[in-house]
């Protein structure tokens, strides 16, 4: 079974569609949405509608901090992000908001754990930005595979020699063997707001039978996505980030 791992869509419907099309053409049979469906982008309604459709069909969907912020804007978010959260709250229907509120923080299935940030304390939205942070999440997940987002980068943490956690920068499009007897934590990158100066959408495909993960970048019309952000009256700084992938 090939599972598409999509995270940090951030209301970017064009990027989501491009990844879904790429995944389906690559033989994906299941989908997992790793949180932050909204925030930043101008099409949260369309994104939620699509993800809710997949979830009804059995897809995994977990909650991200931006999804939580729709119910109550937390104090740590900066002005632009708060503005988007407020706008999103007004834009979304009651159904959409209750879909976001209903999302679990973490889903465990067989030897896989799906969580937006860290499995160690999902509600604290800790960033996996070091081997020790990855170690905590892997230990708490208790699974061979932990799939996460939140950090808008594609990285693969793994248990190497002497059980030490090491980080690996994947080559896009190149299948990486991830054998089950080791523990792995994949940061799948951001569909809707990549930050590595490459505006192309990021996601990953996990092939559970072959025990392989492949990280992908999918180009889409990011200029149109930025235009929609401006047209919606959202902060220009956010449109600029989508345009430049920063």
């Amino acid at each position: 079974m090939i599972i598409a791992l999509l995270s940090d869509i951030h209301g970017n419907f064009g990027a989501l569609n491009a990844c879904l099309k790429h995944a389906s053409e690559s033989g994906a049979g299941r989908y997992a949405f790793l949180g932050d469906l909204v925030g930043y982008g101008a099409e949260p309604r369309e994104v939620i509608e699509t993800v809710a459709g997949y979830a009804a069909g059995g897809a995994v969907a977990v909650k991200g901090n931006h999804d939580e912020a729709v119910a109550k804007t937390p104090s740590y978010m900066n002005e632009a992000v708060r503005a988007v959260a407020d706008w999103t709250r007004e834009t979304l229907s009651g159904d959409a908001k209750s879909f976001l509120a209903s999302l679990p923080l973490c889903v465990r299935e067989e030897d896989m754990c799906f969580v937006h940030a860290s499995a160690a304390a999902p509600e604290r939205w800790e960033y996996i930005d070091s081997p020790s942070a990855a170690q905590r999440s892997i230990d708490a997940a208790g699974a061979a595979y932990t799939f996460s987002g939140h950090v808008h980068e594609q990285e693969l943490y793994f248990e190497g020699a002497r059980d030490r956690i090491t980080v690996f920068q994947p080559t896009r499009g190149s299948a990486v063997p991830v054998r089950r007897h080791r523990r792995w934590l994949a940061l799948v990158g951001s569909v809707g707001q990549p930050r590595d100066r490459n505006p192309a959408a990021a996601y990953a495909l996990f092939d559970s039978e072959r025990s392989e993960i492949t990280f992908h970048r999918v180009p889409y019309d990011h200029l149109a996505a930025a235009r929609k952000i401006r047209q919606a009256g959202l902060p220009a700084s956010i449109a600029y980030r989508v345009e430049n992938g920063i």
Partner: peptide, 15 residues
């Protein structure tokens, strides 16, 4: 191999 995680990366003595 640059496309694969280096399982021996932390194994100074043996690698």
């Amino acid at each position: 191999h640059a496309h694969f995680p280096d399982l021996l990366a932390e194994e100074e003595r043996f690698a």
